[in-house]
Amino acid sequence: MADNKKKSNALTNNALVKKIGGQQLVVILVMIALFIFFCVASESFGQYSTIVSIMDFSYYVTFIAIGVTFALMTGGNDLSIGTGMVCYSLIGGFLISKLGLPVGVGMIVTILCGMLMGTLNGFLVAVLELPPFIATLCTMMIVRGLGSIITGGVSLSWPAADAANGWFRSFFKMTVGNTKVPVGVVWIILAVIIMSIILTKTKPGRYIIAIGSNKEAARLSGVNVIKWHMLAYIICGFFTGLAGIAYAGTFQTLTPGTGAGLELDAICAAIIGGTSMYGGQGTIVGTLIGVFLMCILKTGLPYIGLQANWQQIIIGMVLILAVLMDVLRTKKRA
């Protein structure tokens, strides 16, 4: 026991580890190891097109994961982001493909829908003090149904890349010559930098962290906890809207009633990246790292010939490890 403590002290005292954060460093190392492993195990994995695919799948997860990090940071959760993302995207797509409105309008509406639902989530959690798990479980069902109702239950597509109004797809992937360039990475990096600054260097961010650490203490020290608590969910909704656009830009068809389970990918990514389930702790960079670990795992496992059920088992085990690290860390803090 004493030995263990000494070892962990030695680890945490290292300057580099301190700067990046212990768990993130482990995750980065695991990610690199995994990438190398997949490249060695399957010669077709290490190709440029595979990397573009990993990027393609990472955009929408990154957006909802950044959003949900804010909700997790308050000690809450947001389960409505998976079905919500598909729902807002369906609403936007409906305006574009069925009502013939410009793509720009569809995009703005998609984001506004996300923010509206974020506000509702925030209201339920911060004002009415419903448990976040239950509140967002309810809104998850609501948005799932809403998407079906608005589109009449039919799947639909945003304009294809080669269609006249398919320009929005080049926000995420551009064709230069014969090469596909995953330009969506630029938005991801931008979002991570901006949200990291907001979370750590601005008043709203610090208050959100404070609410997650100890809501009562924050309230007593004069913080308007209701306002900032709600803001965390509105930010989450905003990013869910962005994710809706990324999802529509990456995939061909949006199917009503789908999206359930995607929120878990995002929450998992945030937790793998070091965000605490108990609130008050986490970083946006960590979340990004978590997203990429998940994406590499999900993309790589089929390449090494591992069948469907085994993939789920492995992802489940990775999560147990990540949550275990969170639990141990929280215990240590206490």
Binding site: G261, P302, Y303, Q307, Q312
Partner: peptide, 23 residues
Amino acid sequence: VLVPSEVKNELSITDGSTLLNKA
């Protein structure tokens, strides 16, 4: 024969890429 672990677009696309990437 490849079947995704869940009916999700990205998992099915990965199946497609896996096959397309084999020379």
